[in-house]
Amino acid sequence: MIHETIAATNAVVTLDIPLPDIFWGWFVTMNMWAKSIGTGLIFMLFLLLRKNSSEMNGLRTPVIIISFVMMNVFLLFTLADLHQPLRMWHIFFYPHWTSAITVGAWMALVFVGLEFVMIAVMLRKEKCLITKDANGFFDKTLFWVTLLAIPVTLYTAGIMAESTARELWQMPTEAVQMILAATLSGSAAIILIGGSKLSDESKNFFASILGLSALMAFTVYMSEYIFGAMKAEEVGAILAYVKGDGEYATMFWVGQWLAYIIPMVLIGLYRSNKNASLLSLAAILAIAGLWIVKHVWLVIPQLLPLS
């Protein structure tokens, strides 16, 4: 490893003014976090429809509205992060299809549009011009929206994969993490929204999804944490920021505990004593912790000098 030659060369950079390091900051974290909740809720609503459709009553409208709000939060922060936000329309009029950003922007637009139609139908059941069977329309459309939610969830991983300078972000891993973030935050959100409207069976079901998502995501992070440096020197240098006394080590572990470890423990306790408060606490911690986890992973590759 080239890093090991420093002891012999004593090479020190005495003049290099690298460009400011963190370009994608917490606005992009908000983008990823809100999108995870927005698409994750759709996945969970679809699973509820398949598992126990009678429990959909009373949940269709609030869940789709919250998903829609989170998707708009995602779009708002995407827009706000642009240095030229008023030129956003260029994506649609000068699209460049090799860019995951372009593909994602179009898919997100269709996704949010479909959600808007579903909300309109549910809110105007009596006067709806599209259909008289609002619930039936909703459930049929939900299938297509769920299908679309998969690439909408994944396209950010595509952007990270196309970020050639950031060795830490590898496509297979990031794709898995994006899906797990959606299932984690989606199950947590529907547990909180559903509350007493969900049966014990459904609560157990979503608790299992939450716990398993936390377990798998934690496993992937730990795999990267332990083995990442063994394959690529750059990854090793980046992971040093979350190891030992690294700049983001504390924040990394706070995120891992809040998003994954504590929720797993709380869900284990919930399954033994059926205390719904424990489940709600696990859901809140998972959603809050996910933001921290995402932020750390977004920022640390940007700290490494490229020249």
Binding site: F23, W24, L82, I91, S99, A165, L306, S307
Partner: peptide, 16 residues
Amino acid sequence: DRCIGCASCVMACPYG
């Protein structure tokens, strides 16, 4: 004139 300032190119360029 076309650039929207998304900084994705900044993230992609391995040479800074």
